[in-house]
């Protein structure tokens, strides 16, 4: 009970602190909207593609929690802020859970704005399935936040954090289908993408936005992300360090591999029995064959 109360207390103060930070407004609110404006310029009146773009935009917004949280946690540790929170009866659980929750609550308005802009300004043909979008945004935010917390726990300095973040972020961005449609990649790269957590978020959101897939229809994406969240949160709790000088033993870094297990399992299953790649390719081809898409798809531009 106390843990829940402390989590909520910390969540509220974290949101308040973020609202006082100009960098937060730029990276979390302005940047996604700048990308949306870019999309307007890029796609013009191809309204059939807007749902597809919305899926990609939402994926990028949700994945952003990965960057924000790892950087914040390492900064707090380096500045000795975390060690002050170690004195009162607050455990690692509420500290980490509050990071995830505050991040989620701050991402929600951006998600809503993106959906509204796509529907009202870019004339998206339908609302998609908002319930499925909400479910995936929620679990996706939790999963990527937890992955960010793991990075923060295994890195000792801000430099290390940014280096590792960049490497992982690139893989998330380009192999998820959120920036470049996965369907235009060679077959072997598509197979590699099946093992990337971001793939499940991108495919699920794309499906919910373009085909109005129900939560049941994106159940596999949800399960992959939910299992990924559960394992990643537990690993981040195990690896959490309050003190800047508390170095992580090398073997503890093996814990990180545990966080990848859910996606290795789902990736293997998809590679052997799944139809995900077929669906991704079919969806993309269908869009290309639409009247405006047939003239010129965004990827062909």
């Amino acid at each position: 009970m106390n843990a829940l109360k402390h989590t909520w207390t910390l969540t509220k103060i974290r949101i308040r602190l973020a609202m006082r930070n100009r960098a937060f407004f730029f990276f979390s609110l302005a940047m996604p909207l700048i990308f949306l404006v870019g999309a307007v310029v890029f796609f013009g009146r191809h309204t059939e593609w807007v749902g597809y773009i919305l899926g990609a935009m939402l994926t990028t917004t949700v994945m952003g929690s990965f960057w924000g949280l790892s950087v914040q946690l390492v900064t707090f540790r380096e500045q000795g802020i975390l060690r002050r929170f170690r004195l009162p009866p607050v455990g690692a659980g509420p500290m980490l859970a509050s990071s995830i929750l505050s991040n989620y609550f701050m991402a929600l308005p951006v998600v809503v704005i993106e959906i509204l802009v796509c529907r009202w300004v870019l004339h998206m043909q339908s609302w998609g399935n908002l319930w499925a979008i909400f479910v995936l945004v929620t679990i996706g935010s939790a999963t990527f936040s937890s992955l960010g917390l793991i990075v923060a726990s295994v890195t000792n300095t801000m430099q290390e954090t940014q280096m590792i973040n960049n490497l992982i972020w690139m893989a998330f961005l380009f192999l998820s289908g959120a920036t470049i449609p996965l369907a235009i990649f060679p077959q072997w790269m598509q197979r590699v993408a099946l093992f990337i957590p971001a793939q499940y978020l991108a495919t699920g959101l794309e499906s919910a936005a373009t085909k109005a897939s129900t939560p049941y229809e994106v159940l596999e994406d949800f399960l992959a992300l939910a299992l990924g969240f559960w394992v990643a949160f537990e690993v981040s709790r195990q690896l959490f360090r309050w003190e800047p000088e508390a170095k992580l033993p090398r073997r503890a870094k093996l814990w990180v591999l545990a966080a990848l297990v859910p996606f290795l399992l789902f990736g293997t299953w998809e590679s052997v029995w799944g139809t995900r790649l077929n669906r991704v390719n079919t969806n993309y081809q269908t869009l290309r064959m639409t009247p405006s898409g047939a003239r010129q798809s965004p990827a062909d531009k």
């Binding site: 500045q79 060690r83 002050r84």
Partner: peptide, 19 residues
């Protein structure tokens, strides 16, 4: 927690969030 409830401390090297 039982112990933490009973003590208070000023640490040598610590800080709070700027804002």
């Amino acid at each position: 927690d039982q112990f933490k409830e009973k003590i208070g401390a000023v640490l040598q090297s610590t800080a709070l969030p700027d804002k």
